[in-house]
């Protein structure tokens, strides 16, 4: 049996073993095996929002009507945070795509009473909707505020429901949802690779956001596979890689790349002169 089939068997048996063997972050050294992760090159990201709608389309995220936005209950598993710097004429907008960081030490996981969110063997912070009882404790724990609560059952007026992705559960009211790293695509790749008796190839899995991103600001792969592009990228770009809110010690699986552009200094000088 190939090792990915082994892997699949292990994943299948996890359900019955659960309770005794749900891996905690401490039990799964994320230097071993697969660790899915993403590299986000902020220098490439233009804030174009393609990833945002791609994720909505892939993951059956409920419509964010105006009232939802006004109530701040709009759900965007990935959102483009825009930060202002300076004032006219030297104002700058900075864009950061923020999605679940799939933390190696996830503060959301420890507080969930019912294992609705836990760390799987491939480094994903998994959200099991059926288990979730909607305490929202995990959302408090997450310093990135990427967990969204379902205040109602989502509704798609006919025939809009036709577009729902059958691979992804439609989440009911009363539970928390968030970016899954498009786990349905990972699972599909596992099945395909398993049937073909091989390992998942680098680049075989692409989450919807990364697939759409015109500038390739988002790249996704197994960070532990040194042959994967993101792993190499993170290595090569070590001087400009960082993780979000590093001081929380969450060990994110999302690595950001950003170096200050040298031109910024010109403006600073101007600022100083002014």
């Amino acid at each position: 049996m190939s090792s990915s089939a082994n892997e699949a068997a292990a994943r299948a048996s996890a359900v019955s073993e659960m309770g005794r063997t749900i891996p905690t972050d401490a039990e799964v050294p994320h230097s071993e095996g697969v660790r899915w992760g993403m590299v986000v090159d902020l220098d490439r990201c233009t804030g174009c929002q393609a990833c945002v709608v791609a994720c909505q389309a892939e993951n059956n995220i409920a419509l964010n009507e105006e009232q939802r936005v006004l109530e701040r209950r709009a759900k965007t598993w990935i959102r483009i945070e825009r930060y202002w710097e300076g004032e006219f004429p030297n104002a700058k907008a900075r864009f950061i795509p923020v999605l679940c960081q799939h933390c190696g030490n996830a503060p959301c996981e420890t507080v969930c009473p019912v294992w609705a969110t836990y760390h799987n063997r491939e480094g994903l912070n998994v959200q099991v909707y059926n288990r979730c009882i909607g305490t929202r404790f995990c959302a408090n724990g997450c310093p990135y505020s990427v967990r969204y609560f379902n205040f109602w059952n989502p509704e798609w007026p006919e025939p809009m429901n036709n577009q729902l992705n059958p691979d992804v559960t439609v989440r009911t009211k009363g539970i928390i949802e968030k970016c899954t790293f498009c786990v349905q695509r990972i699972n599909r790749a596992h099945v395909t690779a398993g049937t073909e008796g091989r390992e998942i190839r680098p680049g075989e899995v692409q989450p919807a956001c990364a697939q759409s991103c015109p500038t390739s600001a988002l790249v996704f792969a197994d960070l532990n596979n040194s042959e994967s592009y993101p792993a190499q990228l993170a290595e090569a770009e070590a001087d400009r890689s960082y993780t979000l809110l590093e001081h929380f010690g969450t060990d994110p699986g999302v690595i950001y790349l950003k170096k200050v552009d040298p031109h910024a200094e010109i403006h600073e000088d101007e600022h100083a002169h002014a």
């Binding site: 945070e81 930060y83 202002w84 710097e85 900075r94 993780t243 979000l244 950003k258």
Partner: peptide, 17 residues
Amino acid sequence: NARNDVEEVIVQVTNGN
């Protein structure tokens, strides 16, 4: 207007490094 008040760049808002 969520701002990058602390420092000039995103990097620093986010990890203070």
